[in-house]
Write a protein that binds this DNA or RNA. Sequence first.
DNA 1: GCCGAAAATTGATTTGAGTCATGACAAGTG
DNA 2: CACTTGTCATGACTCAAATCAATTTTCGGC
Lengths: 246, 246
Amino acid sequence: MTQINFRPADGVKGAPTSCANCRLIDICLPLSMQLDDIDRLSRIIQHRRPLQKNQYLYRVNEPFRSIYAVRSGTVKTTILSESGHEKITGFYLPGELVGLDGIAENRYTCSVVTLETTSVCEIPFVQIEALSAQMPSLQRNVLQMLSREISHDQQRISLVSKSSAEQRIAALLVSLSRRYEARKLAAHEFSLPMSRTDMGNFLGLTVETVSRVLSRLQSQNTIHLNRKELRILDFALLLEIAEDSR
Amino acid sequence: MTQINFRPADGVKGAPTSCANCRLIDICLPLSMQLDDIDRLSRIIQHRRPLQKNQYLYRVNEPFRSIYAVRSGTVKTTILSESGHEKITGFYLPGELVGLDGIAENRYTCSVVTLETTSVCEIPFVQIEALSAQMPSLQRNVLQMLSREISHDQQRISLVSKSSAEQRIAALLVSLSRRYEARKLAAHEFSLPMSRTDMGNFLGLTVETVSRVLSRLQSQNTIHLNRKELRILDFALLLEIAEDSR
DNA sequence: GCCGAAAATTGATTTGAGTCATGACAAGTG
DNA sequence: CACTTGTCATGACTCAAATCAATTTTCGGC
């Protein structure tokens, strides 16, 4: 299991590190900021100890304090339906931010759960506000990250409302692939961070259907799947399945 | 057809009006701002002539200039799949903002189409930025509106990924009902602003299924529907159908 | 390494939504 | 006004996904 390490620097464990050394700099909040601005931003970021699998980063209705950047690992966001059922609304990879939903009501409107061992950068919101009052580049970036999240959410809506199970699953795999690619990781060979159950929950399908569709895609040589290790054999076809709409 | 008038003031047509007189003030961007701040905000808002049904407010990839508040009428946002198929990602009622997705890339990532005659308030983004640099209340409100949109998008994801057609349709009706209620309009008797086709597109269902489910809900006396005029007869049941999840 | 629990796969069957086809109705057009 | 056009409703039929059930595989703890 060759887990890629997103630790920003090789410094002493727990020592302060800077976003300037982080390999996610082209994707994450400091995106296209000046070096000295990045350093000022880095100083307000808190590095937490990594969370084990299935831990809550925060829960719905907790008071909003911070936004978080996933540094390594993967998380899911969940909302609670009025009947008490948990519904997954998204998966977040390294460099993606969670907690942005908390700004409006000053408390989180969803919960965040780790899918594997995950470390995050915590960015206290009052400090973001204070700093961005003096730093237009940060203010602009915060707005951009929120806006980007809205675009992504819309993509997600179109993903989960696709008509067939095959389309939805193909579209999820394509989405993951592209996001790994943007992180300069292997786009056609990666590990699915979530369980089949989670995929089904997110996509509005039963586990059995997820399992069957994955098997079918495998028998057609579109993908190869060994437990969670995915290899995309025919990306073009996968994309066609995902997009080919009635 | 008693169309409720959202025109902010009774002034001369085209004369400058203020958000202070608008009945959407508790919902829209100026939410909980001071009166003098509201006046300053009002001055940068441009009132466009109303758009007829099926007109584009803007199209995907157009350069981002403004965000828009729906003043009266209804719009839908659509994104284009790679296969060229249009997918509806949301419906927006008076007091809701569209265009927030444009901030990140400086161009819109979706298109906005009117579902009926609609008027909007245009708010040029450079002016928002300039003004919010001097007006913390506005800066905060802009962030809150973006954050709120993210929460709503997550709700929408959970809505469209529900498992059965009945659940999805019930959930959409509940959502509309609550949003009309928040606008102090009749929550249990309103006109569906979108066609059956649009409902189906948004929910990932065929028109026929939409039609059949609506008929079924009607024959069970959960709703009464005459063309687009909807009366919710048993809201509790409708909510139960929407939320009752496996 | 072994055990029990959880997760995933696979099969058989049922059910619900899609597809195709037709007709009703309303709105718009010449 | 007749005629077209678009929207919606409904029926017959098919097919895909849910459900129910039984194994198999994987994984965490001892």
